[in-house]
Deep mutational scan, measured.
Amino acid sequence: SISSRVKSKRIQLGLNQAELAQKVGTTQQSIEQLENGKTKRPRFLPELASALGVSVDWLLN
């Protein structure tokens, strides 16, 4: 799922939720909701993929 991929990649990069949120241009709460499965397809998906160094396709599939 996107939530597990985001969380595992974030941890692999040594980032906390607030640091990832800053790179993406969103809030820590938005990252938390995404990782908890409350958000399925965030509006900041391209920025998120870029910050994590992955493709949008990788996040979604």
Rank of each mutant, 00 (worst) to 15 (best):
I2D: 02
I2Q: 03
S3L: 04
S3P: 08
S3N: 07
S3W: 09
S3V: 05
S3H: 11
S4K: 11
S4G: 11
S4H: 14
S4F: 12
S4A: 14
R5Y: 05
R5N: 07
R5Q: 06
R5V: 06
V6K: 00
K7L: 09
K7Q: 10
S8G: 10
S8W: 15
S8Q: 15
K9T: 08
K9Q: 08
K9E: 03
K9D: 01
K9Y: 05
K9V: 10
R10P: 02
I11K: 10
I11G: 06
I11R: 09
Q12R: 09
Q12S: 13
Q12W: 09
Q12E: 15
Q12C: 09
L13M: 11
L13V: 06
L13K: 06
L13F: 05
L13W: 06
L13E: 04
G14E: 05
G14N: 07
G14W: 03
G14Q: 07
G14Y: 04
L15Y: 11
L15I: 09
L15G: 01
L15H: 03
N16L: 07
N16H: 07
N16F: 05
N16I: 06
Q17F: 07
Q17I: 14
A18G: 09
A18Y: 14
A18N: 10
E19A: 09
E19Y: 04
E19I: 06
E19Q: 14
E19F: 04
E19H: 05
L20V: 04
L20Y: 01
L20Q: 02
L20N: 01
L20D: 02
L20S: 01
A21N: 02
A21H: 01
A21V: 00
Q22E: 13
Q22Y: 10
Q22R: 13
Q22M: 13
Q22N: 11
Q22V: 12
Q22I: 12
Q22F: 12
K23Q: 10
V24M: 06
V24I: 11
V24S: 07
G25I: 02
G25W: 03
G25Y: 04
G25L: 04
G25Q: 06
G25D: 04
G25T: 03
T26A: 08
T26V: 15
T27D: 11
T27V: 05
T27E: 05
T27A: 07
T27M: 05
Q28R: 13
Q29T: 11
Q29D: 12
Q29I: 12
Q29S: 11
S30Q: 15
S30G: 10
S30M: 15
S30T: 10
S30E: 15
S30H: 13
I31C: 02
I31P: 02
I31Y: 02
E32D: 11
E32A: 13
E32M: 07
E32Y: 09
E32G: 06
E32S: 10
Q33T: 14
L34M: 06
L34W: 03
L34E: 01
L34C: 05
E35F: 01
E35T: 02
E35K: 02
E35L: 03
N36L: 12
N36A: 14
N36F: 07
G37K: 05
G37Y: 05
G37L: 04
G37F: 05
K38W: 14
K38T: 15
K38G: 12
K38V: 13
K38M: 14
T39V: 15
T39L: 15
T39I: 15
K40Q: 13
K40L: 14
K40C: 11
K40M: 12
K40Y: 12
R41S: 12
R41I: 12
R41F: 15
P42D: 03
P42N: 07
P42T: 07
P42K: 04
P42A: 08
P42F: 14
P42V: 12
R43F: 12
R43S: 15
F44W: 14
F44D: 04
F44I: 05
L45N: 00
L45Q: 01
L45I: 10
L45Y: 06
P46W: 11
P46F: 12
P46L: 13
P46K: 15
P46G: 11
E47Y: 07
E47Q: 14
E47W: 06
E47D: 10
E47H: 08
L48C: 02
L48N: 00
L48W: 01
L48G: 00
A49D: 00
A49R: 00
A49P: 00
A49G: 04
A49C: 05
A49M: 03
A49I: 04
A49T: 04
A49F: 01
S50G: 10
A51Q: 05
A51K: 05
A51N: 04
A51R: 03
L52N: 00
L52H: 00
G53V: 15
V54R: 01
V54S: 03
V54K: 01
V56E: 10
D57Q: 13
D57L: 11
D57V: 09
D57T: 11
D57R: 11
W58S: 04
W58H: 03
W58I: 03
L59V: 04
L59N: 00
L59D: 00
L59Q: 00
L59W: 01
L59M: 04
L59A: 00
L60M: 12
L60C: 10
L60E: 08
L60D: 07
N61P: 10
N61L: 09
N61H: 12
N61I: 09
N61V: 09
N61A: 13
